[in-house]
Write a protein that binds this DNA or RNA. Structure first.
Ligand SMILES: [Mn+2]
Ligand SMILES: [Mn+2]
Ligand SMILES: [Mn+2]
Ligand SMILES: [Mn+2]
Lengths: 221, 221
DNA sequence: AATAAATTTTAGACAAATCTAAAAAATAAA
DNA sequence: TTTATTTTTTAGATTTGTCTAAAATTTATT
């Protein structure tokens, strides 16, 4: 069948979708930053996506994905996260190594391939970073989670996802033995710099506010 | 790191490699036919591959891959065949469904990915069509094989690879229960049209000369 | 050897995706 | 509410890969 949209267009759709989720509204500069490109290139692409009926766009007035654009974006995200899961679970990559490779694999076009892969992996619900994997209809189940700053002291909880997913933070978490599924509790909060002392497997670890904001956990009640 | 060569260039290198293997020498028209493109486009690309030092080319005089071009082509072939093996063995695709998908997957650039995949699959020696899979140094072991026309009558042999790999022939072979590893023997050769009567699992099957030429087998002695 | 046919290459065009530099519009500051 | 700053868009190029039509070259046929 061949790909329906170019890799470049798919990357734009995905970026816009993510920025929309986080900030509600998206700007040309925002997208340029995310995709390491120039604002002028973004404008060029916005016109093309509009012409392709994937985006609502009026110049100088802003833009957002329409239903079709959102649908396409969700399928790319599904592919990205399923491949990440495959790389970690089957090929034993570390969670901080998989993003770049999935960035390429997500553009493989076969629908049958991705559904077979999903099945082969046992229909996983979340990727190695704890992010939900949309099903083939683009639906996902979101679990209630809070960041570490908002976790009550002495409440045992389980790490469920990571906000910032740069190689840098993943490396830091790796070093401190914080991974998805890790059980931990906050023992002390320091008002001075909002740093936290947390307990992991009977070991005491200190993390900064910046890190705490990016570690999400879930717990009962 | 990103891909070293574009998908398009990789496809040209692979096509030239294959045509070189089969016909010894390759022509512009040949490549155009193989890649479903125009002779003029091929000439354009030959210049680019020459400039990139992957090809020896003098206009009107012919062309062939140099050492580097051959090396790159072999790595693409390695990826193509490993992915095909994955699709059949792990995702349960049929052997006549995998080529198109592998045609995309072969361009994923990560070397580490492909070596991990190789390991995950148990370092297979041949792909689902019986073609040898080059190792990461580009070496492969070729097994001695003959086509069915040259198999002595009453000699039990095992199907080891298929020449023409169009969906059409694979469908026909599927129907007649001829697959890689199938044990068979030629019972009768008809001089009139060079058709053959062969025995497969105690069943008698007739195949044309055209098919027989494309089914390769190996046998002891 | 001269002519015809086939093959290959060039010339010039086009679409996609990107860029720089400059212009236009929107937003913030004085 | 002017003026200054920032953001966004346009104008015009560039690169990559493709195409058609025409020209150049090679190969085959008389
Ligand atoms: Mn991508
Ligand atoms: Mn992820
Ligand atoms: Mn390919
Ligand atoms: Mn194959």
């Amino acid at each position: 069948m061949g790909p329906k949209y170019s890799s470049s267009r798919e990357n734009y759709l995905k970026a816009i979708f993510h920025l929309q989720e986080i900030h509600g509204t998206v700007t040309t500069n925002h997208v340029a930053g995310e995709l390491q490109t120039r604002p002028a290139s973004v404008t060029d692409m916005l016109k093309k996506l509009k012409a392709q009926k994937l985006l609502l766009y009026e110049k100088y007035k802003g833009f957002k994905l329409n239903t079709e654009g959102r649908k396409v974006a969700l399928q790319i995200i599904r592919k990205h996260r399923l491949w990440e899961f495959f790389l970690v679970e089957k090929l034993h990559f570390r969670w901080d190594e998989v993003h770049e490779i999935a960035e390429e694999l997500e553009h493989i076009s076969s629908k049958k391939l991705i559904d077979r892969l999903d099945e082969f992996l046992g229909f996983p619900k979340t990727d190695p970073h704890g992010d939900p994997i949309p099903d083939s209809q683009g639906r996902w189940t979101l679990t209630h989670q809070v960041d570490l700053l908002n976790l009550p002291v002495n409440q045992v909880a389980e790490v469920s996802s990571i906000g910032d997913q740069s190689a840098e933070i993943l490396e830091l978490l790796n070093h401190k033995h914080i991974a998805l599924g890790t059980r931990l509790e906050v023992k002390k909060k320091f008002a001075f710099d909002n740093s936290l002392e947390i307990k992991i497997k009977n070991q005491s670890v200190t993390i900064s506010e910046h890190v705490a904001k990016n570690v999400f956990v879930k717990y009962d009640e």
